[in-house]
């Protein structure tokens, strides 16, 4: 089984050094450098990753889409799964095998790492604890999925399913806030989605570029637009 680990990084040279060593053996690492001004690209190359560079910052959603396209269309390797995680070190790569186990056992196309099911969720910031279930409830209502954390960035995708939905990524209306939109579109083509619990770690260094209010409105806007766009 071939596994690609994908991450989108913006000025994450220090965190990358911290978690890349924990990636399970045999996995290939792809880093989308999303317009970094530090040495993210060179550190990633030094750590054995393949690097795709955005010449300017586009956001995590765009980084994910570019990475998926690069892995699926531009490499000659036939991967079975792609696992996407955040580059800031909050996601533990040691948890990757349980995503794959879950996907195989239940024949799932997408496996989401649920922070709510994780044992350290009570430590999450106040706004996240209050609004995550709210957004997830909206997504569940619109998709028919039964998720507990639709906004999690730690996800595994079956490549054969991704190949089928590759055109969906070109139709994304709000890639910066893609989580909700992605699941709504996935549900329309009948992809099967499941969850595994994950534990969030403290970020190794740096800060989050997502403003809570802006992100919240962005997600609602993305949901609204996707509902209206029936394509």
């Amino acid at each position: 089984m071939r596994l690609a680990v994908l991450t989108g990084a913006l000025n994450e040279e220090i965190p990358l050094r911290g978690w890349v060593k924990d990636i399970p053996e045999g996995c290939d690492l792809y880093v989308v450098d999303d317009g970094s001004t530090d040495g993210t690209s060179s550190v990633a190359l030094e750590l054995g990753a393949r690097v795709i560079r955005h010449s300017m910052n586009l956001g995590q959603g765009y980084a994910f889409i570019t990475g998926v396209k690069a892995i699926v269309s531009e490499t000659k390797k036939d991967y079975d799964y792609i696992v996407y995680l955040d580059a800031d070190g909050q996601h533990d790569p040691k948890e990757i095998p349980k995503f794959i186990r879950k996907a195989k056992e239940e024949d799932l196309d997408v496996v989401v790492g649920s922070r709510i099911l994780g044992s350290n969720y009570h430590n999450a910031p106040f706004f996240r604890r209050k609004f995550l279930p709210f957004y997830t409830a909206i997504v569940n209502r619109l998709t028919g999925y039964r998720m507990t954390d639709a906004m999690s960035g730690f996800r595994a995708f079956r490549v054969s399913a991704l190949k089928k939905v590759l055109p969906v990524f070109d139709r994304m209306l709000e890639p910066q806030y893609m989580a909700a939109e992605m699941f709504i579109r996935f549900s329309r083509v009948g992809l099967k989605v499941g969850e595994v619990p994950i534990n969030m770690r403290d970020r190794i260094s740096g800060f989050s570029y997502k403003g809570f209010v802006r992100y919240g409105f962005g997600v609602l806007k993305a949901i609204g637009k996707t509902v209206l766009d029936r394509a």
Binding site: R50, I52, H54, M56, L58, Y62, T66, A70
Partner: peptide, 13 residues
């Protein structure tokens, strides 16, 4: 920007 990134990646590959 995405197209340029993919093109550059294809060349490197």
């Amino acid at each position: 920007v995405q197209e340029i990134a993919l093109l550059r990646f294809r060349l490197e590959e």
